[in-house]
Amino acid sequence: MKKGARYDWIDIYDWDRDPDGNIIHNGGIPIKQSFKSKVANLSPDLVWGITNTLQYKAFTLILSIDGRVGGNSFSRTHQMLWNSGAHVDTDNQYRYDEVVNGKNTYIGEGVKVVSGSVQRDPDGNIIEDTRVYAPNDVVVSYEAYISRYHDSTSKPSRQNVLDETFFKIRNLSLIYTIPKSLSSKMRMSNASIGLTGQNLFLWAKEYKYADPDKGGSSDSSYGYENLNSPSQRYLGVNIKIGF
């Protein structure tokens, strides 16, 4: 840790990589380092929000959108979707080959060690490295691979530490104020009717299957999106009558 450096890091056991950043495979299976390293920062660069009220004649439009830029967290939802085979992208040719045709066809993307070895100090810094790499060509079971690549629930995998950048339409209401002439006939001083909706739209850069807005950033599981339930979408009708 350096003076003036950020203290909101996320450190996990990253994949072991060659100097070009390719994941190193052992027997066709990706290998994690035995040493933790910093992979990202928790806090967002910017949290923004706009609330606007527009009025045109009898119509009022209330719009509130907000979002976040930057900031990372480990998404347990994404990891476990993959790990359990429930992720939509796990339904692919490799899985079909394995389950239906009984044939392994998957080759993990990365390299394997052909010869040599690496020596590390207790922080994981490389002291000596004589490893020679070749592209990984070991065919393995897709299930065995994915259940390691997206490891069990308590072991965050690097690729599931996601950027929380998102924006969402948090609130949208359209209100029509009934003309005085009409409302006074019904002995009302004023009346309005409106449609309102919350969480109508969410766009997220990397969080595709969980709501990054709920990424446990306030409780003890800081930096963990912990199988959050999605934000509910509310749709409603608003009738307001004054006498």
């Binding site: 035995s34 020596q119 590390r120 100090d121 207790p122 002291i127 000596e128």
Partner: peptide, 15 residues
């Protein structure tokens, strides 16, 4: 810790 590693294996390698 580094002293201990050196004492045991003459190097600072963790293995």
């Amino acid at each position: 810790l580094l002293i201990a590693l050196r004492n045991q294996w003459g190097t600072e390698v963790e293995d």
